Amino acid sequence: MLSALTPTKHLADADLLGRIGTLETRIARNAAEVDAAQAVRYQVFVEEMHAGVASDHAARRRDVDSWDDVCDHLLVLDRAIEGDTTDQIVGTYRLLRQDVAERGAGFYSQSEFDVNTLIARHPGKRFMELGRSCVLPAYRTKRTLELLWQGNWAYALKHRIDVMFGCASFHGTDPASHALALSFLHHHLTAQGEWEAHALPELAASMNLMPLDAIDTRKALSAMPPLIKGYIRLGAKVGHEAVVDHAFGSTDVLIVLPIESISGRYLSYYGADANRFGAQES
């Protein structure tokens, strides 16, 4: 459990959400760490994936938007890297709780998807938006992804979250180039009933690009971005349409993941109290 973590010279027990080897995960403590996370995002989204950013942000080599000021920023740090904590950030996730969003400008996803209707169907549940997930190329390994999920899970438990959701992206602005993967999502994994969700009508792009009998499941899963594949394994569903984000150079789908729907084997793996990687030593 988190209270049983071995103290380190870097962190107090209460800060640490998980550890595997030299990798640790926790929430950013200050503006300098958020700035460093934005630099990691710039490397991945702009330099690698060619997303567009404002000229002043490009000059600073940072991926920044207005939600950064109200979100919590989950970090993965490699303590084997020499230097300060800001030099050790190798992955990040942006977390926005419903109560915080409602006091501010709402959720990021609301610019593309009708999440208001989805949330209104569940007045007794607490929602949390996941976004801006990225990992530096050298750290795109199972252990890094496990720590990101460990951090999300521990944070969700701490804040009594019932539902996680958010935009997840395919690279590029041509949905047809992802016809196999999008069609698989359409035929097999669209959320139904009380969890049904749709893109804003003026932005909606169909994911029904191939007939069901033309879809090879193995190839479709292989064509999925790792993040979306990870959501699927956890038990997530998706909205009924995609949205093309020309500014960011992506094709987005809405992920919907009620905590109660998370696969039992993953709850067992990470621990019902998020202790799976809590006591790992370097």
Rank of each mutant, 00 (worst) to 15 (best):
F165P: 12
Q192S: 14
G83R: 10
A54K: 12
E241M: 07
A214L: 08
Y155S: 14
G52H: 13
R19W: 01
R126N: 15
L200Y: 06
D84C: 08
A199H: 11
D68G: 01
G278R: 09
A51H: 04
A220W: 00
E202C: 06
L11N: 09
I27V: 13
Y266R: 00
E24P: 01
T86K: 13
F165D: 08
H187N: 01
Q192Y: 02
L74G: 14
T86F: 08
A31S: 13
L118D: 08
D68A: 01
L145F: 06
L189K: 03
A58E: 14
A51N: 02
V253T: 05
H187M: 02
Y231N: 01
G131K: 04
A138V: 07
D65G: 02
I20M: 13
R233H: 00
H57N: 13
Q192W: 03
S222F: 02
L203A: 10
D174G: 03
S169L: 03
I81N: 09
A28M: 07
T141K: 13
M207I: 02
L212W: 04
A120N: 10
L227M: 04
S111D: 14
E202F: 07
D13G: 09
K158E: 15
G151T: 05
D63F: 03
T251V: 05
V90K: 06
I20N: 09
Q280D: 14
R140A: 06
E196S: 15
C71L: 03
S268R: 15
H188V: 00
D273Q: 14
L257C: 00
H187A: 03
A214E: 15
F184G: 01
A279C: 14
P137E: 04
L23A: 08
R126L: 08
E241R: 07
K237V: 00
D162E: 05
F165Y: 11
E260N: 10
G83L: 08
E48Y: 03
H159I: 05
A191S: 09
T22L: 10
R97P: 00
P175I: 10
Q88Y: 00
A272F: 11
V243K: 08
M210L: 15
S177G: 10
T8R: 14
P175Q: 07
W195S: 02
G124C: 05
V70I: 15
L95C: 09
L16T: 14
K9L: 11
L23N: 03
E146D: 15
A197P: 09
T6R: 11
W153V: 02
A247F: 10
E260K: 09
F165W: 08
I89Q: 06
A51Q: 03
R60Q: 15
R97K: 13
R60V: 01
L234I: 00
A247Y: 11
H159Y: 15
G52D: 11
I20Y: 10
S3R: 12
P225L: 02
D56C: 08
A28S: 12
A181T: 01
L2M: 11
A59D: 12
R19L: 03
D252Q: 09
D72G: 02
Q98P: 00
V256N: 02
A54M: 12
I215Y: 04
K9T: 13
H240E: 13
L257P: 01
G239E: 04
T86H: 07
E112H: 11
A31D: 13
R19I: 06
A37E: 02
A179S: 15
T86L: 09
G131A: 08
